[in-house]
Structure formats: C-alpha cells, structure tokens
Design a protein around this nucleic acid. Structure first.
Length: 726
DNA sequence: GGTCCAACATTTTTT
DNA sequence: ATGTTGGACC
C-alpha cells in the first residue's frame, strides 16, 4: 500500500494527523470520529516514510485494544515490528530486562487484586492493627491511589493531610515490605517502578528513547500520573509523542486517572500540534444533539463542536416507568419489536451504571426468550481453580511468593494444617527466608513424621514443576501441576466439571504459548502474559445476542440501538451514600459515553420506584434528563399505577427551570450567601416547580439546602478556577 | 479438616 | 435481596 493510498478518503484534519510525524501531537477525537483509523494509518505512514516499524511504540490500556490495533496495522501491510501493547505489559517486560537497574530480580511475581488483598491483610496484621478497622481491600485502594500519583510511603504524610488518611503510612510501608520479601510487584508497582527508573537512569532512558523513537498513547484522558511520566520519559528528547483521547470520555478518575494530563498537554509540550476530530461518523444528528446537550453542562471542559452529516433518525426516547419491573419489561418489549421489524439481536445493547441493575433486565429478556450476553467482572483468571493452578506455577517460578504458597500449601487438603503452616511462617520470618526455603530443610520444624512426609512431598512437587518448565515446556508444567497436585482429583470428586474445563483451557493457553515460542519461552514470561491478561474478550459483538454491560465497559464500543436504564437521581449521577456528593462531571461524562455508543436509536429509561438493597424506595429522574434538548426527544411517561396522580415533587416545569432559568447553576460552582458566605454547589435536583440545590459552605463546612426560586440571599459567583476544594 | 450458619457489605474496575 | 466471608461446631 502506497503513501497516497493511506491518505485516501481521509478528511483534512485526519490527513493532518496522519502526516504529522515529528514533534508532539494531540489528537482530540470526539466519539465516532474515526480515531482508530487515523492512528493506524499514521503508524503505517510513519513506517513508510520516516522510520522503521521497530521504532514505533503504541500504548493502550487493554490487551484487547492493543491486539486490535496490531491487527489493523498489519492489515495496512506494515512490516512487523511495531510494539503494540498495554502500559503494564511494556513495563513488566522492561523491568524484567533491566531488573538489575531497577533493583529487582527478573522472576518477580505480579500480584493481581486478590493477591494484593492477601498481602495487605498480612501487612495490616503486622502493624498490629485490626482488619476490621483497616479493611485490606480499602487499604489496597488507598495505596493504589497513592501509587498512581507516584507517592511513596515516605511522602504520604504530605500527600494525605488529615489524620485518618495518614494512619495508612505504616500500613503502606508494611505492605511494600511484604511485597518486597516475596519478590512481587503489584499492578501499580509496574508503572511506578518504571516511571521512577526512567526518571533516575538517564542512560537507560536514552537507550529506550533510541529504540522507541515514535510513541503513541491511546485514551490519554485515562492516564494516571505514573503513566504520564512514562510516556513523557520515553519521549523527553525526541518529543515524538502522539496522544489521542477525548476529555469528555474520561471516566476513570475514581481510579486515579488524571484528566489534566490531556487538558494540559499543550502546556507540557508547547510545540504541540493539535488536531480536532469532531465530525461524527457514527450517530444520527438527534443522538449527537442529545449527547452534546448533556455534556455541555460540564464546566471544566474544552468546548468541542460535534457534528455529523449522517441522515436523520428517530428522536431520542425517554421512558419513565412506574417501577423497575415495568422498565425492564418495556425495554424487552421494545427489543422484541425491533426483532420483529427485521433487526438483529446483536444490534442492541443495554447499559446501566451498576451491575446490580442487570438482573431485572435479564429476567425480562429471558421471559421473552431474547438471547443476551452479560459482560461481567468475574473473569476467567479470577476463577478459584485457575488461581489455584497458577499459584503452583507462580511458586515454581518465584519461590519467595508467599501469597501463592499460602494459597496452595494445603489446597487440595493434604494434611498440612493451620498449625503447621503457622510454624512454617514463624520459622521463615525468624530466618528471613521464604516458607518454601524453610521446607527444603524441614528439620527443626517439630512436626510429626506423617506431616514431614507430606511436606517433603509438596516440596518435591514444586521441584518437579520447576524442572519440567525448564526441561520441557510451559504446558507440560501446567499439566503436571494440575494432575499431580491433586487439584484435578479434587475437582472430579466434587463433580466440578467447570473447574476441570477451565483448567483445560489454561493448559490450552500454555500450549499455544509454547507453539508461539518454540525457543526462548519461559514459565516466568507466560505467567506475566497471563497475569496481565484481563477478562478474555468475553463480549463478542457478533454472537447474535443482546449485550448487557455497565457504562464503563461500553467505552470504545458501538451499537445500532442503545438503551440506558436507571437514569435516576442517585443512580446515574451515582451517589454511594445519601450525604456524599457525586462527582457530577464524571457522572455526566459517563452518561455521554453511553449515549454516544448509539448509531441509530437511543432510549433512556427511568422508573419512579425501585428496590435498592432489598428496600423499596421512590426515585426521581436524573438531572441529566432535564438537560436533554426538548425538541430532539420524545417523552413517554407511563401513568403511575402505584400512586395515581401523585405529584412526585418533580414536573415538566422543574425540568424546564433546570434547563433554562438555572442553566448556569452547576455543581462545583461557587455561590455567596448573605449569611453564610462563600459556598459551593454540591448537588442540584428538580423539586416542585423549580430547582433545589445543596450548598456546602466554606466557613464551617456545613451543607444546606435551598430552593433557588426562594433563596434571595443566594448569589451565583462568576466562574473562577481558583475556587477552593473541599 | 470440613461443613454449616450468621453477620456483613453491597460502584464503576482497562491492568 | 443476595452473595461472600469468617467463626463455631462436629
């Protein structure tokens, strides 16, 4: 394929992006704007004109995205050699290669969330704190946030100002020690250590910059600080850094993603060229107008003109049902009509804010015999049987891996009980050795002859796995672990066919790895690949079924017909606790992402009554519904059967007031009250005939509620970025 | 060492 | 309402 062909059929801005080779480049790509096409063509263009494939690095967030990109680049007949991978796998690979420079050993284990929690539990216990007051999962979360921000334990004191947050410092320290003892890194460490290494080791940085002369980062709006430093470090001198993304689709702030990375790219790289891809090839004008009207309400935002020359479609539908069952039934019914009209099941997707909402929809679809697939979090690699099997292999690869050791030393039960394990751990801690090292010489453990026998058998088993992995191949080692550990036997005894099948799948995966790496394959490398693999792409867009997923999971996908259910106050701007404020801007972006997945038809639904956590309660419409352009949408509010004619404290007038009269009153804006002084709007809600607002005041941190129509003492301040944050 | 019941906490989750 | 985890008991 020639260079001209690569540019064929591209719009002007797309061409500009594709042909910009040297220097920083920011591609602001709205939804459905052909971004993927631009970045793959650009990669092909670079490989044709200014460099070789091996000097190009493309970083993504998911393996799926990386694979798809690699595939599409291959289709453009680019020489093989482009590095196309996730941040995490790049870091893992480099940290193994340059382990000595990073102060690591190359066979380190990679801890996933479950392993992290196990390690954290140990850390909390070592601090002699209660796991009730310091729940390990929460602590993992806090430490993860800190690491995403590149905050080390010693800096945590300044990072977290208040006392309760600072109590994490010793836990963070202990946790890092636990990981280090086990020669393990968690997901966040992969990024943190790499970012740190790039900052410290100028020689290595030069070396890597020479290798990766052109760096591309996709979904830049979702990078955290560590990822930012890595991207920056890799492009520090040559500045051939191309980032793509859409600030309006930043939905992972709660996980440490820093939207300022993309918003301030131009300040970071003053020479940056900026290309805006605003033309939408995906959706009807109605859908686009509706999504645009919603996202416009965000204040911390770069304005973007979304447009399309796609043909007109039906208006966006909003359906308000009486209760959640009715809502689900209506969605199912609409889908059934779509099928009767000649549509296909895989045209349709149903999105929701939280997984719990899928249940009623599933029931309704089953009732109508509509096939569906649910994209849910229980991934293959989180399965108990898979984790157990992997623990044997991880222990073989890294004898210091205590989490894995504890996981399987007595699984399946083989007579090494809690007391024995406790003794082993004690001895290991005394001697500063790993449990497995203690077991190699079990004298002095004071265990019965029988237990001693079981122990040496276990040590022998791990040794065999090590040997087989070295002498034969990975799949043989996996098979050996499954068969000889007794796992296989325990599954068949429990008649757990699923477990056996999943284990077979794991062997198949290892066999595939062996095929792909006839030489140079290793257990450590396979384990890395496996740990960094998330949910195998369980969602197949063409399997002839309706797709159910969370709004987060929907990012990057598109469907002809989209339903977003539960567009209700507290649920779509999601509030975890009644008194906590939601991050309205991020919630709104989430809504925007969901809406812009739709090609032809979009339906938003809500209900007046919903059972939440076993308790039923009234619910009211989401403020986002009030933000929709009224001329582009069609309302269908089903008459309430439950409370006939009842005024739920919300009507058209309130929506109207919200959308027009108080359009400037947005969450986050500052106000002044004659009595209470400076305050910040933390929530808004249609109420009665007008708008009700919650304000938090700076003076004493109090939160007060006002009906805007009647609050004469309240005055909206001009927008000011220097506002205080609570 | 295994089973059963009670208490608990319930977002989103690319790696 | 429901699924998970931890403790008590066999």
């Amino acid at each position: 394929m020639g260079v001209e062909e690569l540019l064929e059929g591209l719009t002007e801005p797309q061409k500009e992006a594709v042909t910009h080779a040297h220097g920083p480049l920011l591609i602001l790509a709205g939804p459905g704007s052909g971004k993927t096409r631009v970045i793959t063509h650009r990669t092909a263009y670079l490989a044709r004109t200014v460099t070789e494939a091996r000097h190009i690095l493309a970083l993504t967030f998911t393996n799926k995205a990386a694979n798809e990109m690699a595939e599409r680049i291959r289709h453009l007949a680019v020489e093989p050699g482009v590095t196309c991978c996730t941040f995490h796998s790049l870091c893992a690979r480099l940290l193994r290669t340059y382990a000595d420079r990073a102060g690591l050993t190359p066979n380190f284990s990679i801890f996933d969330q479950a392993d992290q929690t196990a390690a954290m539990k140990l850390a909390v216990q070592r601090c002699e704190l209660s796991t009730d007051n310091y729940p390990p999962a929460k602590m993992v979360e806090a430490v993860s946030q800190a690491k995403n921000d590149m905050v080390l334990p010693e800096d945590y004191g300044q990072y977290a100002r208040d006392w309760s947050a600072r109590s994490i410092i010793p836990i963070y320290q202990a946790y890092q020690k636990v990981l280090a003892e086990q020669n393990a890194l968690d997901f966040d460490d992969l990024l943190l250590k790499m970012a740190w290494l790039l900052g410290e080791d100028a020689e290595l940085r030069d070396q890597l910059q020479d290798r990766y002369r052109f760096v591309l980062v996709d979904e830049y709006q979702d990078t955290n600080h560590a990822q930012y430093l890595i991207a920056r470090g890799l492009a520090l001198d040559h500045e051939n850094l191309c980032v793509t993304g859409d600030p309006d689709q930043s939905i992972y702030g709660w996980r440490g993603a820093n939207i300022h990375n993309i918003l301030e790219f131009e300040e970071d790289f003053p020479k940056a060229k900026i290309v805006r891809l605003e033309k939408n090839y995906r959706s009807t004008p109605q859908i686009l107008a509706a999504a645009d009207a919603v996202i416009r309400h965000n204040r911390k935002r770069k304005h973007k003109e979304l447009w399309t020359d796609n043909g007109s479609g039906p208006p966006v539908h909003v359906i308000e049902a009486d209760d959640a069952q009715q809502e689900a039934a209506l969605v199912a019914e609409t889908i059934a009509e779509h099928i009767e009209g000649g549509g296909k099941y895989d045209d349709v997707a149903v999105f929701y804010r939280i997984n719990a909402l899928s249940r009623l929809i599933e029931e309704a679809l089953r009732k109508r015999h509509i096939p569906y697939q649910v994209a849910r979090g229980v991934s293959f690699f989180q399965r108990k049987e898979v984790k157990d099997t992997l623990a044997y292999l991880r222990l073989a690869a890294n004898p210091k891996d205590r989490v894995s050791f504890l996981r399987i030393v007595n699984v399946p039960t083989r007579g090494i009980g809690d007391t024995t394990v406790e003794r082993i751990i004690e001895r290991a801690d005394e001697a500063g050795l790993s449990p497995l090292e203690i077991l190699t010489d079990p004298s002095g453990l004071r265990v019965s002859a029988h237990t001693g026998e079981r122990i040496s058998w276990f040590v022998g088993l791990i040794g065999e796995i090590v040997r087989i992995a070295a002498d034969e191949n990975v799949s043989a080692a996996v098979r050996h672990a499954i068969l000889h550990s007794g796992l296989r036997a325990s599954w068949s005894q429990a008649k757990d066919d699923d477990a056996a099948r999943n284990a077979d799948e794991l062997i198949a995966d290892a066999a595939e790895y062996d095929r792909d790496h006839p030489e140079g394959g290793s257990l450590v490398d396979w384990l890395q690949q496996v740990s960094l693999m998330s949910e195998v792409d369980s969602v197949d867009p063409e399997m002839g079924a309706v797709t159910l997923m969370t709004l987060h999971a929907a990012k990057g996908l598109e469907f002809n017909r989209v339903f977003i259910i539960g567009v209700e106050d507290g649920l779509l701007p999601y509030r975890r606790q009644e008194d906590r404020e939601a991050d309205m801007e991020e919630e709104r972006r989430l809504c925007f992402v969901g809406m812009t997945r739709a090609r032809q038809s979009l339906t938003l639904t809500c209900s007046r009554f919903r059972v939440v956590r076993g308790r039923g309660s009234r619910s009211s419409r989401s403020v986002f519904l009030a933000e929709l352009p009224r001329e582009q949408i069609e309302w269908l509010s089903l008459p309430s059967e439950r409370v006939p004619g009842e005024n739920r404290g919300y009507d058209e007038a309130a929506a109207e007031a919200m959308a027009t009269r108080y359009a400037d009153w947005q969450c986050g804006r500052l106000v002044r009250h004659e009595d209470y002084g400076l305050g910040k709007i933390i929530w808004l809600r249609p109420a009665g005939r007008g708008v009700c607002a919650g304000i938090r005041f700076k003076i004493d941190g109090s939160e007060r509620t006002f009906v805007l129509e009647q609050a004469a003492k309240l005055q909206l301040l001009e927008y000011d970025d220097s506002g205080w944050d609570s």
